[in-house]
Simulated assay, not measured.
Amino acid sequence: MKTILDFSNPHQPESARLRHEFGQPLQHWAAHSAAEVPALLNAVQQAAEQGLWCVGWLAYEAATAFDPAYAGAVHAAQPGQPLAWFGAHQPPQALAACASENPSTPRDVHWQSPLTREQFNTSVARIHEAIAAGDCYQINYTTALQAAANGAGSESAQAWFARLQSAQPGGYAALIDSADMQVMSVSPELFFDWDGSQILTRPMKGTAARGATPEADAQAAQTLRSSAKERAENVMIVDLLRNDLSRIAVPHSVKVPQLFQLQALPAVWQMTSDVVAQTRAGLRLVDVFSALFPCGSITGAPKRQAMRLIHALEPGPRGVYCGALGVVRPGLVPGRIHATFNVPIRTVVQHDGQLRCGIGSGITASAQADGEWEEWQHKQVFAKSLSPR
């Protein structure tokens, strides 16, 4: 078992990355029911307060642990997978070595989508009907690409993770190996960074394909920056995050210091905004998750109604995809922790002989099926890096 953490510094992206490698955990926790998730998070916090580093994830379906209203808005957990898993490690002493290619790694991954173009068009039309009826403003609609893992195991996951990082560098990347399941995330999206006092969220909404030439690329960025549709998609989620943060924030401390920033990824431009707050004294990690999870950027708005429609449109659970993945470690202030989590998009999960990779986008009133379908094709380019060229 090997866990690799390679996270950007959310506050200073150009500074040194949080980059470490961990072996077998000293202990681990798995929650197989919603009732077990809060106790797991409390155990993780206690371990971090005692000096350990805890790395793990929560599945999207763990939402029911934080709000009973989500019970009818998410599917049952992915078969054979827990709702949450964390491993505890001694503080790392050295920078991680990069994962490397392994001759035993399967040479080809053939992704298949269970969603046809006709089904996609029908779902987008249904979302537009719900928006027109006033039921919601935006829905993050997704599907899961699938492929055979061909008997691959932990060593293959390490090599695949290296390929994914090469195709999608930077961001908040991690490989978490829980023996029978490997999660390979190269997500560019920050969920939250919380030092026990200050919290930062950075929702990512708004996408444009990169241009083939420097001139075309600059034009693509400018078009995204000035797009009324993409800006509206982004600000809807910013407002949702502001509301979620207000549940744990000191009154009047929720701010939006940056709006509509562009982030260059290999295949697409992405628009992000920052939402920050000072959190109330005495909060625990489970309180932060209760207020924020799942991240509004992968549900839509309003959150509960969006999740109900997602449940009706998507035939099965999302699993780790669209949940949360990150590290909880000792804070700089004694007695505090520091938690950093991504939104696990651009994430591949290997389990039970299969690979899964979610793809999705936010559908608004002005979204067109053709444009959204094309966006999905651009977003899944990273997953094709699992097959060597």
Results as ranks from 00 to 15, higher is better:
residue 201 T to M: 05
residue 362 G to F: 06
residue 222 Q to F: 09
residue 18 L to T: 03
residue 52 L to G: 02
residue 102 N to C: 10
residue 19 R to F: 14
residue 203 P to A: 13
residue 378 H to F: 11
residue 41 L to V: 09
residue 119 Q to M: 12
residue 372 E to D: 11
residue 265 L to G: 00
residue 29 W to N: 03
residue 181 M to I: 10
residue 242 R to Q: 09
residue 14 E to W: 05
residue 330 P to I: 14
residue 273 S to L: 06
residue 328 V to R: 03
residue 67 D to W: 04
residue 274 D to L: 12
residue 85 W to K: 10
residue 198 Q to S: 12
residue 373 W to Q: 07
residue 123 S to M: 15
residue 235 V to T: 14
residue 321 Y to Q: 03
residue 215 E to W: 10
residue 69 A to L: 14
residue 228 A to E: 13
residue 322 C to M: 11
residue 389 R to H: 13
residue 45 Q to D: 10
residue 126 R to A: 15
residue 68 P to K: 06
residue 199 I to V: 15
residue 131 I to K: 10
residue 385 S to Y: 02
residue 48 A to S: 15
residue 238 V to Q: 02
residue 348 V to N: 00
residue 86 F to L: 08
residue 275 V to C: 07
residue 67 D to E: 14
residue 94 A to H: 13
residue 280 R to W: 01
residue 96 A to E: 01
residue 53 W to G: 04
residue 149 A to F: 01
residue 93 Q to D: 09
residue 375 E to K: 12
residue 381 V to K: 15
residue 211 G to V: 14
residue 351 H to K: 10
residue 368 Q to S: 10
residue 97 A to T: 07
residue 239 D to M: 08
residue 376 W to C: 14
residue 301 A to I: 02
residue 113 S to M: 09
residue 369 A to W: 15
residue 44 V to I: 08
residue 310 I to Q: 02
residue 309 L to F: 05
residue 348 V to C: 12
residue 89 H to D: 11
residue 105 T to C: 13
residue 155 E to W: 05
residue 355 L to V: 05
residue 144 A to V: 11
residue 16 A to G: 02
residue 288 V to M: 02
residue 155 E to K: 13
residue 44 V to D: 00
residue 43 A to G: 07
residue 38 P to L: 07
residue 369 A to H: 12
residue 151 G to F: 11
residue 66 F to G: 03
residue 7 F to H: 00
residue 187 S to T: 01
residue 325 L to E: 01
residue 109 V to T: 06
residue 373 W to L: 10
residue 265 L to H: 05
residue 216 A to C: 05
residue 302 P to K: 05
residue 346 R to D: 06
residue 18 L to R: 06
residue 374 E to T: 14
residue 24 Q to G: 02
residue 207 T to E: 07
residue 236 M to S: 09
residue 42 N to E: 15
residue 229 K to Y: 07
residue 61 E to I: 09
residue 138 Q to A: 02
residue 337 I to A: 04
residue 1 M to E: 04
residue 162 A to W: 06
residue 94 A to I: 12
residue 359 I to L: 13
residue 223 T to M: 08
residue 66 F to I: 08
residue 66 F to L: 08
residue 321 Y to K: 04
residue 230 E to C: 11
residue 53 W to R: 05
residue 14 E to F: 04
residue 112 Q to D: 07
residue 272 T to L: 02
residue 274 D to M: 05
residue 354 Q to T: 15
residue 320 V to C: 02
residue 276 V to P: 00
residue 69 A to P: 03
residue 370 D to F: 06
residue 45 Q to H: 03
residue 369 A to T: 12
residue 230 E to W: 02
residue 258 Q to K: 11
residue 106 P to W: 09
residue 382 F to N: 00
residue 294 P to S: 07
residue 140 N to S: 07
residue 73 A to E: 10
